[in-house]
Write a protein that binds this DNA or RNA. Structure first.
Lengths: 180, 180
DNA sequence: ACTAACATGTAACCCGTTACATGATTAT
DNA sequence: ATAATCATGTAACGGGTTACATGTTAGT
């Protein structure tokens, strides 16, 4: 149960509703673990059933009411245990790489286009990462412990992203040598 | 249907049996898309049912007979079309990063251990990558078209791998500043 | 009235993993 | 005999995606 632990992690410091979790998963933790709102609601029910989350309805003015979830003591314990468990890490499955194995004169232009699009997407993401780092993680050594971990996740994202940009350039150069 | 296209890609140049596909998926394409033998056999049946693969039993001496699959004309067409289709790429889901969000004095030693293990695993993989590049992809510009695509996949693996190593070092340094 | 953002869910399907199951052949 | 490698599958389960479905509130 992987998503469950990601959700509990998001709830470590704040109580959040399903809607807020789905929205926040598009940034922060969501950079490394995205999930749809349907999946999140389902998982929230499962975690509540296990007694790992508490739920509480919150009245809002100007908005529909929401149900916020918080970690219970049991939930905190289960999460802490999970960190020590050995988890299988699967290599990323990227359609683009499989497509590249099919490179030929007909599709080279299309693949160059896909790479260009991915490059731009990554540029935007890196811009976001850079902004977050500047604002919150300027001096990692001075951060409180947990934030050091969050910083490291961000640092990996930045490194991999920058390397991906460099690869896109290499790839576009090499694709330019393919005769159509 | 993602795995199906990866399998067809593996069959672009050779006819292969399910067993051979499962084995080869541990190297080459499998660096970027791994699959269990069960899943492969299931997918082979589906692809055959669609008429995208032909099957043929091959008698072997000294080994049990095998069933080799090859791309049909329809299969080749479907694969070529797929390359042009837009596929959404999901960000890698890595438990280690979620765990890092849970960093505290209690688990810092464990997480440092996990990172060290991943680092060693990546070192081995990079060694393999380097060997493959040296043997088959020394001068990418001179490769035939399709091989250029395969090279690019390898090149990304190498770049990401090297960057991961550098990140592991950074992470271990920062984790060393956590007081236990 | 209509649209956008907020808010929560169910159902069907697809895909992947784990466990289970079988059998051939070669080497020790 | 028995272990290792080759070879092919089925069944149950878990998890994720897509499609479907409903309702509130604020702003135009």
């Amino acid at each position: 149960m992987a998503l469950g632990h990601a959700i509990m992690t998001a709830l470590l410091e704040d109580e959040l509703s399903g809607y807020e979790l789905a929205r926040d998963f598009e940034t922060s933790l969501g950079f490394f673990w995205q999930a749809s709102h349907q999946q999140i609601y389902l998982e929230l029910r499962k975690l509540s059933d296990k007694g790992w989350l508490s739920k509480r309805e919150v009245s809002q003015s100007g908005k529909p009411n929401k149900i916020v979830y918080g970690l219970t003591t049991d939930g905190r314990e289960a999460l802490a245990e999970w960190v020590f468990s050995t988890t299988r890490n699967q290599a990323a499955k990227d359609n683009l790489l499989v497509k590249l194995y099919n490179l030929d004169a007909d599709n080279v232009a299309h693949l160059a286009g896909e790479i260009t699009a991915r490059r731009e997407e990554m540029m935007r993401r890196l811009y976001l990462y850079a902004k977050i780092r500047r604002r919150h993680y300027e001096q990692p050594e001075t951060l409180p412990t947990r934030r050091k971990g969050v910083y490291l996740a961000l640092a990996l994202g930045i490194r991999q992203g920058e390397q991906f940009l460099a690869w896109c350039d290499e790839a576009l150069d090499l694709l330019a040598t393919v005769e159509t």
